[in-house]
């Protein structure tokens, strides 16, 4: 059984990268708007459906459909912010959380009512599904997810830590009143954050679609793991979310192979529990102390 270990590690990292990419959107909203968005997984689901409709329904070429889906979702992020967050921005964080939970129920049902329940498939980024490297089958779609996740992490890091926009976003998150007194347009910052977070969600959705298929339930499957990844890594911490995602992916894959398949989903959450017990602020968690 040791012979299958390299393959398990590759797949575990691949699936972990998917969780990580999805959890980046979570982290962004937490950092910049102090919002826990329970509809984050539904951004992925919507993005995948938009791509599917453009590609199969309208007949738009692959890359155009891919990019259009991501761009349209940025617009949707702004609409989402206006409808779900903005009316409640002066209320407690709980009110916003409940509002996003509401959206996470509404969105899949709207898709169910308009598109129907039948899951569908979209082709991967590359015509070649994968190749062998020694004993490992390298799935090109998993590989793409890993590369794009790394790219997005770098981009996000640069934006947040090295640009004025990023500093403004962080300032808005930490103290809206102070930020607005300093001349930062809080409304603009919040809308930008939601748009970017929707882009990240959509990216995860269109990248995962060839692996998991496009289905109404796909958002829920991703969001729960992505949220757990965020907690394991440290609430609102970017490198933490990535590490958290990879840890869950590996724990699930190795746990299922060597311990038990029915409990595959439990292994990730078991690690979540352990982290909460031993290091409640997560692996890299310092942000909460910073804010307090």
């Amino acid at each position: 059984m040791l012979a299958i270990l390299p393959q398990l590690i590759y797949t575990g990292l691949g699936i972990g990268a998917i969780y990580a990419l999805c959890s980046l959107g979570f982290v962004l909203l937490i950092r910049a708007a102090n919002v826990v968005n329970f509809a984050q997984g539904q951004f992925s689901m919507l993005g995948a459906y938009i791509m599917l409709v453009l590609l199969v329904g309208v007949g738009v070429p692959y890359w155009a459909a891919f990019l259009l889906a991501v761009i349209l979702m940025a617009g949707f992020g702004v609409v989402f912010a206006g409808a779900v967050y903005w009316p409640l921005r002066h209320r407690s964080q709980l009110a916003v959380i409940i509002s996003t939970i509401g959206a996470s129920i509404l969105l899949p049902n709207v898709v169910l009512a308009t598109y129907g329940p039948s899951p569908a498939t979209v082709p991967g980024l590359f015509a070649n599904p994968g190749f062998m490297v020694g004993p490992i089958f390298v799935d090109t779609q998993y590989l793409s997810v890993m590369v794009i996740t790394v790219a997005m992490v770098v981009l996000q890091y640069v934006i947040f830590e090295k640009t004025l926009l990023g500093k403004k976003l962080q300032a808005t998150s930490q103290d809206k009143e102070m930020a607005s007194m300093l001349g930062i347009s809080v409304a603009a910052m919040v809308l930008i954050t939601f748009a970017y977070s929707a882009i990240l969600g959509a990216l995860a959705g269109v990248l995962v679609a060839p692996i998991l298929f496009v289905s109404v339930g796909m958002g829920g499957t991703l969001a729960l793991k992505a949220f757990a990844a965020n907690i394991i890594g440290g609430y609102g911490n970017i490198p933490g979310a990535i590490l958290g995602g990879l840890i869950i992916g590996l724990a699930e894959t190795l746990g299922a192979a060597y311990i038990s398949t029915p409990y595959k989903d439990a292994f990730g959450f078991l690690i979540l529990l352990l982290v909460l017990l031993v290091r409640p602020r997560g692996l890299f968690g310092e942000l909460i102390a910073e804010k307090a």
């Binding site: 299958i4 393959q7 398990l8 797949t11 691949g14 699936i15 998917i18 995962v208 692996i211 998991l212 339930g217 829920g220 499957t221 991703l222 793991k225 699930e252 894959t253 190795l254 299922a256 192979a257 398949t261 029915p262 595959k264 989903d265």
Partner: peptide, 15 residues
């Protein structure tokens, strides 16, 4: 056995 809505079946396939 597997729980519904799995993202990945590699561990099962390898076994």
């Amino acid at each position: 056995g597997y729980a519904n809505q799995q993202a990945d079946f590699t561990p099962m396939v390898l076994q």
